[in-house]
Amino acid sequence: MVSEELTEAEAKVYDRQLRVWGVETQRRLNAAKILIAGLTSGVAAEVAKNIALAGVGSLSLLDSTPCSPDAAPGNFLIPADFMASQSVAEASAETLREMNPLVRIAALPGGIADEPETEYLGGFDVVLLVQAPLHMQLAYDKACTDTNTAFFTACSRGTISYFFENLHVHEWTPMDAPSGAPLQKSLASFTPLESALQHPWKKLSPRYTHKLVYALRVCSEFELREGRRPALADADKLQHRARELALEARAEVAADYPRAPLPKGTIPEDVLPTEVLEELVTGDMELPPVSAVLGGVLANEILKVVSHKGEPVNNFFFFSLMDNIGQIETLG
């Protein structure tokens, strides 16, 4: 339930953003309950900082990784004088409380479960999982679907990064609706992560589709089959699989045009550039500028979701320094 009035302290602290998006939007933010699982990442730190400063109602952090100089090199929320007995979630929570004392910030006990409790996740409005193995992403996505909880998962590796969101069925209004005009509400339907990763290649346009789409598909197949992330030594196998999928897509298109040459834009055999694939499997270290860009866009998405204001990304967002652009892809 959104509270009827902002407190005097809230009105003073959030004065600038109240001028931008209004009291009703701030009320919605103040009532939102957000969970971020995985705090060793710079992306998670960026998102946590941005949504805490925006004034969400409560922010829960989940990551039992013990603090150490090497535990979370990308998380700038962990102070230099951290206590060795603290987890990265606890150390991050302390810094966030100092940034905005008005937000209820909690470091949850325990680690990130492979099989999350569905009812527990249902107590949040948004769940964000960062830098997690694919099987865990799929489990969280399913649990959030069962409880109609908005689900996000994000990854940043080297020069490339992306996030995925599943809002199930989401109602939103335009961000720039004219003052006094009746609100035009729209509905957006989303696809589960598993279905999105199985998007038919024959429906992709190689001219416009981000190359990370192809890389992510073959890497996700490998991870589910082998139970581990692919490494550089697996690049040839992954490239071979990409060619197989491309040939299958070409054959499917050819079946639709049995007496004509393949149409322009049909997926080529070499659709996946080697440098893109290698960066995805070898980019173990996060780059702060990449994490900052992805974290900023992702935090804004979460604020849009809980406020129901602004058209959401549906359903992947990719950002890479290779092309220095952010691109939305709707898969599934």
Rank of each mutant, 00 (worst) to 15 (best):
P261G: 03
R228A: 03
D270F: 00
P289S: 07
Y257C: 07
D236S: 05
V290S: 12
L298E: 06
A246I: 01
D234T: 04
S291E: 11
P268L: 14
A235R: 05
L238E: 10
E275I: 13
V276G: 04
A249Q: 02
R250K: 12
D284N: 13
E301M: 09
N300G: 14
P268M: 15
I302W: 01
A255E: 13
A254M: 08
E279P: 02
E278D: 13
R250W: 08
V290W: 05
D234P: 03
D256E: 14
L272V: 13
A260G: 02
E275Q: 15
R225P: 01
E226S: 05
A254F: 02
P273H: 07
N300Y: 10
D284C: 05
K237Q: 04
R250M: 11
P261Q: 07
L287A: 06
D256L: 07
T282V: 09
P289F: 04
Q239E: 00
A231G: 11
A235E: 00
A254P: 07
L287G: 04
V293H: 10
K304T: 06
R243K: 09
R228T: 01
R241E: 11
I302Q: 01
T266P: 03
N300W: 12
A260L: 09
E279H: 06
G227C: 06
A260H: 05
Y257V: 11
E286V: 11
A260M: 06
E226G: 03
D236A: 01
A255K: 13
L272C: 13
V297A: 10
A235C: 05
P230Q: 05
E275N: 13
A299P: 10
I302D: 03
E279R: 04
A299Y: 10
L303D: 08
T274H: 13
L232H: 04
A254N: 05
T274K: 15
L238W: 02
L298Q: 08
E244T: 11
L262I: 14
K237L: 06
G227H: 02
D284V: 07
R229P: 00
V305N: 15
L277I: 04
P263L: 03
P263W: 02
A299I: 09
E244C: 08
L294K: 10
L272S: 12
L303Y: 08
G265N: 11
